[in-house]
Amino acid sequence: MNDIIENIKTKGMQKFIALGALIVLYVAFSVFGNNFFTVDTLVSIFDASYYIGFLAIGVTFVIITGGIDLSIGTVMMCSAIVGGTLYNNMGVPLWLSLFVIILVGGIFGLLNGIMVSRLKLPPFIATLGTMMVASGIGSIVSNVQSTTFPMRSAADGWYKNIFRTADNFPTGIFVLILFTLLAVILLNKTVIGRYTYAIGSNKEAARLSGVNVQRWETVVYVISGLFAGLAGIAYAATYTTILPGAGQGFELQAIAGVVVGGTSLSGGVGSIIGTFIGVFIMSILKIGLPYVNLQPHYQTLITGIVVIGAVLLDIYRTKKEKSIKSKS
């Protein structure tokens, strides 16, 4: 029993605070919101969480290595546009187009990985460049036209069922949980995860102890790219039409979710479950705030304050933790 409490105190505190905040928010909106507490609203919260969730899970890997991936938002849109164009204009079957969407995300990830690990570009700059490249490629591929995926009524509408069935059952939440668990295993039980933390804690030490830093850093960006591709499918399934040139800003929403979930931007610390919770905190705010009849500008303001508060809390907690450790 004492062990559990000790464990919560040292490791999981942030996660518990985050989980607590999530529940408190949901309850608060249910009490004060007009019609917030319904299954439909819950499904909407899920809808808003799928694509941001995939983006956030992928970028968590990168952030734990001490890097950043700013390209995920536009890469998501670009890969969806590529897939949609293949499907609409070139008669490629839908399943193959969906597969290509993930692949395109992975290719952008590889590009980021090579720039960061081999060419030694700072991650911020490399992925900022890729952000623009992806946005441009999306516009070029689609000839600056919006891409429409098949509607539910169409013959190829089956892919929508991956995220929501016709009678509004949120299948997507299981898909998201499945990939969350996959990422948890990847991060905690495999060599990829071990090296991810190692690189983030101390890159030089990792290199000296024989870790092939270049390879594993590349892998981490590829993971982020692949998840951006997944996010592209989720976005297409939820919103049907994809606009070229869009997607900027989603990466910051995802990163905000990661940070709220307790992953440190300085690297070495972080968890997928935390990210999962963080993403839902952001989604509940996004969906819930209009239900309490707030003007739009107040919604953005409050979301910003929550992000800052979460990071402050994290810094405060790590400080305290360190002082406890140094005393004992």
Binding site: N34, D40, S44, A48, Y239, I287, P290, T300
Partner: peptide
């Protein structure tokens, strides 16, 4: 009158749904 805080699909849908949820 509902206006989304940002011009993107998620926020647009949320604004519309807030209205549709009123009995």
């Amino acid at each position: 009158v509902a206006i989304p805080p940002e011009i993107n699909d998620t926020q647009g849908q949320t604004s519309a749904q807030t209205l549709l949820n009123k009995d």
